[in-house]
């Protein structure tokens, strides 16, 4: 799993590449928690453009980060969701909790 982060306007964007499953779950959980703590005032966007596979172990990491963020009044958005990933998100009813978009939101002009 490749994990790249960048700051996008007031948000923290984390782009993932690879399969989100039991093998990558631990590493991803750790990396996201470190970033969430390092940028304590930012909302998080997870970019899944280069993620072709997610199962319930991967989803658990995403939902766990949602819980951590919302406990601190911060939001989570998912972007670049591909159809097979969307199927899994829909089965789990994730859209009720997390905003899912196809593209990154426009950065506010300063």
């Amino acid at each position: 799993m490749t994990i790249v982060h960048l700051l996008h306007g007031p948000r923290l964007v984390v782009a993932l590449k690879g399969d989100l499953d039991l093998k990558s779950a631990g590493e991803l959980r750790q990396a996201l928690d470190q970033l969430i703590d390092r940028f304590p005032d930012r909302d998080l966007i997870i970019d899944l453009t280069e993620v072709e596979f997610v199962d319930s172990s991967g989803l658990g990491v995403i939902l766990g980060r949602y819980k951590r963020l919302s406990a601190r009044g911060r939001s989570l958005q998912l972007t670049g969701v591909r159809p097979p990933v969307r199927t899994v998100l829909d089965l789990a009813g994730i859209a009720k909790l997390v905003t899912i978009s196809d593209h990154l939101p426009k950065s506010p002009v300063r």
């Binding site: 499953d21 039991l22 596979f53 199962d55 319930s56 172990s57 159809p83 097979p84 199927t87 899994v88």
Partner: peptide, 20 residues
């Protein structure tokens, strides 16, 4: 292809359960 993606998720769940 989309059926195969769904089958992969089911297999991943069962095998992950065996391991975890």
């Amino acid at each position: 292809l989309s059926d195969v993606e769904e089958i992969k998720v089911a297999v991943s769940e069962a095998v992950s359960n065996a391991i975890i």
